[in-house]
């Protein structure tokens, strides 16, 4: 369904583009005709699909890293101690910096390889994840925790398990939402400096003023993002079903 929705939106966009082209009378150089875009999508699919897959794999790794990192930081920042407050304040302040402004530093230190793409993807989806996980981990579920607290059984593990279980739907939504951000982060990194991935293909197409190639890239990016989002949502549903059984 999500895939179908994306395809409908994408082809509506192409129709709009073609409508503008023929309505205003733009040249083929500025807006390529539909058959040129179609030809690229169908006949040169490998040139777009493989870089998109490459980007998706980096995005998935970055996303996983961001989830782990955000969970660890949220775990230590959830309490009321001085260290927790410090971590929380730092997390809130750091997220105010636009990642695109930090990205050049990453490229200076790590070069334009996999590490930079991975790190930028991680940073982009890390902050929204952190803020949401902080909210979930630091909000007591009093009706469940009360018994454990009264009887001295509320250790950190029980506390976190209760809070994750009680906010499972929220967690799945947040992780699903951030999966798209991971994809965005990786593409931004590739666009800025990397030599691989679909972001790099877009950069090349931009330098050549090749709008047909950019539109084809958008299609494959959308397909990969939608597939990843569907995968994350299915995994979330599966976990929920297993826990509720």
């Amino acid at each position: 369904m999500r895939l179908l929705q994306f395809l409908v939106i994408f082809f509506t966009f192409i129709l709009f583009l073609e409508g503008v082209k023929y309505g205003v009378g733009f040249s083929d150089y500025l807006i390529p005709p539909f058959f040129e875009i179609y030809g690229l999508i169908i006949h040169k699919w490998k040139d777009f699909f493989i870089p998109s897959l490459n980007t998706l794999l980096v995005a998935m790794a970055g996303h996983l890293l961001a989830i782990l990192l955000a969970a660890i930081v949220a775990f230590f920042a959830r309490g009321g101690s001085m260290l927790s407050n410090l971590v929380r304040t730092a997390a809130y302040n750091l997220q105010a910096y636009p990642v695109v402004a930090i990205a050049p530093l990453v490229f200076i230190f790590l070069g334009d390889g996999l590490a930079s793409r991975l790190l930028i993807a991680t940073i982009i989806c890390y902050f929204p994840l952190l803020l949401n996980l902080l909210g979930i981990f630091s909000e007591p579920v009093e009706d469940v925790e009360h018994f454990f607290r009264q009887t001295g059984r509320l250790d950190s593990r029980t506390e976190i398990t209760i809070r994750i279980f009680e906010n499972l739907d929220k967690m799945i939504t947040v992780i699903g939402g951030s999966s798209t951000l991971a994809m965005v982060g990786t593409i931004v990194a590739e666009f800025l400096a990397a030599t691989m991935g679909i972001g790099y293909v877009i950069r090349k197409a931009l330098y050549q003023n090749n709008l047909a190639a950019i539109v084809a890239c958008l299609l494959y990016i959308g397909l990969c993002s939608s597939l990843y989002l569907i995968g994350v949502e299915l995994l979330g549903k599966f976990i929920k079903k297993r826990l509720m059984a």
């Binding site: 009706d143 469940v144 009360h146 018994f147 398990t161 279980f165 009680e166 826990l243």
Partner: peptide, 11 residues
């Protein structure tokens, strides 16, 4: 102290 809206863990 126990009260009526308490819940047991769901997992």
């Amino acid at each position: 102290l126990c009260y009526n809206t308490e819940r047991l863990p769901g997992w």
